[in-house]
Amino acid sequence: MDYLNYAKEYLMNTYNHLPVVFTHGEGCKLFDTDNKEYLDFTSGIGVMSLGYGNKNWIKAVEAQLEKVVHTSNIFLNIPVLELAKKFTEISNMTKVFFCNSGAEANEGAIKLARKYSFDKHGKARNTILTLKKSFHGRTITTLKAGGQEKLHKYFYPFTEGFKYAEANVEELEKSIDSSICAIMIEPIQGEGGINPLSEEFVHKVFGIAEKEDILVICDEIQCGIGRTGKIYGFNNYGVCPDIISTAKGLGGGLPIGAVLCNEKLNNTFEYGDHGSTFGGNPVCAAGALEVLNIISENSFLEEVSEKGKFVKEYFKSKNKKNILEVRGMGLMIGIEIEGEASRVQKKALQKGLLVLTAGPNVVRLLPPLIISKEELEAGLNTLYEIIEEE
């Protein structure tokens, strides 16, 4: 069957698909319709945190499939209750709302922040301050929340109530006024180029927020759930936000997102303020619980950190003609290059290596967290060769 033509004929033109169709995966490898093997440095954009075919995850999901697949949220189910307990405890938060994706999680976080501020400070305090180069989703509201002008086109009118600042202390201070109810940050900007925020800047955000009763929302959609070698990206800075949004790696491949809050916001949402038909799905919750059981072990997170150091050390030891910078934390790595990242991505695909991009000249690496150092080195050898040939 000519599956690539199926895509052209039946799918909307939302993705510029690479010319490959995958049929199955194992560990950190994917296989296409010709059974060609690919080493995966993408994990479905950070989703397949445990790789492909994890036995414990499959067992947990299959067991729940045989019990109950879905109920309305006017009823409770055991997996979501167990997940809520585990998730709030390891996050140092007090309550959680489950949804289906990162964009939905950010929508929920924005609503929660505005409701808190409305209740305490009145209607006029409703602006969310986000950062330039940020990305928070593709709904109308989360597109506007993202601090990239290229996102703010076609779909007018956009949701109001957002303001943008560069990720430096001086501009942050200039941007604070009486309308700001929350500051929303990605500790490491993902789609914006794999840009870790500076420690000075993050601590300034939290200092201003505490002084002015402004909420801090940490968007952990991409950098959370063990990706940086900590449960969350913000854990690398020694801070704790009021609201956390997360998704991607949480489900281990199944769609799930979450909004977590601290005690200050425990009772902000009242019955009917928010909801999600599929949020808290018992099958997705069962998978997510298994992910958390595995990645929350200290030894697992330490290994992720070590693998991240291994990647950086690899490039430090090389002569770099076309590599300008290697940045990131844990297994969230951006390689800024001379040349087009998309060309590198296509050449890597031909050689059996899957990588991502984050802007025109950044190659993005988000391998499964379980990847071995041997697999990392093999993929890095291929990638280095391609970049230096450009």
Rank of each mutant, 00 (worst) to 15 (best):
F31S: 00
N35K: 12
H203F: 10
N13L: 06
N298A: 11
K133D: 14
G249T: 00
N92L: 10
G330V: 08
E263K: 14
F135T: 13
L143V: 12
D32Q: 07
Q189M: 15
E389Y: 06
N73A: 00
T23P: 02
L369P: 08
K153D: 13
L254G: 00
N195I: 15
L151C: 10
M48K: 11
Y237I: 05
S49D: 06
E340V: 05
K150S: 15
F87Y: 15
G226D: 07
E170W: 01
V363E: 01
A378I: 14
M12I: 15
L50S: 09
G108I: 05
K347C: 07
K346A: 01
I225H: 01
N56E: 15
D119W: 07
L250V: 03
V239C: 03
N73Q: 01
N293D: 02
T33Q: 12
Q345C: 12
T14N: 11
F135C: 08
L112E: 05
Y116N: 00
G334I: 09
C218Q: 10
G251T: 07
L131A: 01
E200W: 07
G161Q: 08
V169W: 00
F300L: 02
I371N: 06
E212Y: 08
N361I: 03
G147W: 02
K321P: 04
S372G: 12
Y6F: 11
K373M: 10
F97R: 11
I180G: 05
G27F: 04
S179N: 13
I45Q: 03
F201R: 08
Y154D: 15
N13K: 14
G287S: 13
S178F: 09
G226Q: 04
C181G: 05
G328F: 02
T141Y: 10
E297Q: 12
D273M: 04
G308S: 02
N293I: 03
K123T: 12
N16T: 08
A145N: 03
E191A: 14
V169N: 01
K8E: 13
N77K: 07
I335E: 06
G334T: 06
N35G: 04
E270H: 09
N73L: 06
T94C: 09
P367K: 05
K150F: 13
V205F: 04
G192D: 13
N16D: 14
E66P: 07
E37F: 12
V344R: 05
L83M: 01
V47W: 02
A358D: 08
N100V: 15
T228K: 05
S305W: 07
A165K: 04
C181T: 04
V96Y: 01
S296L: 00
G352E: 01
I110L: 13
T277P: 00
K316G: 04
I323L: 06
F278I: 09
G379T: 02
R227A: 05
G51P: 08
T357Y: 07
L331T: 03
G251L: 03
K312W: 06
Q189R: 13
F269I: 08
V20E: 04
Y116L: 01
E173Q: 12
G275K: 01
G287Q: 01
K320L: 14
A358L: 11
T382Q: 08
S175P: 08
N16K: 13
E377G: 13
V363D: 12
L39P: 00
L289F: 10
I386W: 05
T23Q: 14
S134H: 07
V304K: 02
L112Q: 04
L354A: 06
Y38S: 01
K309S: 14
S178A: 14
Y116G: 00
G226I: 01
Y156F: 12
A341P: 11
L383S: 12
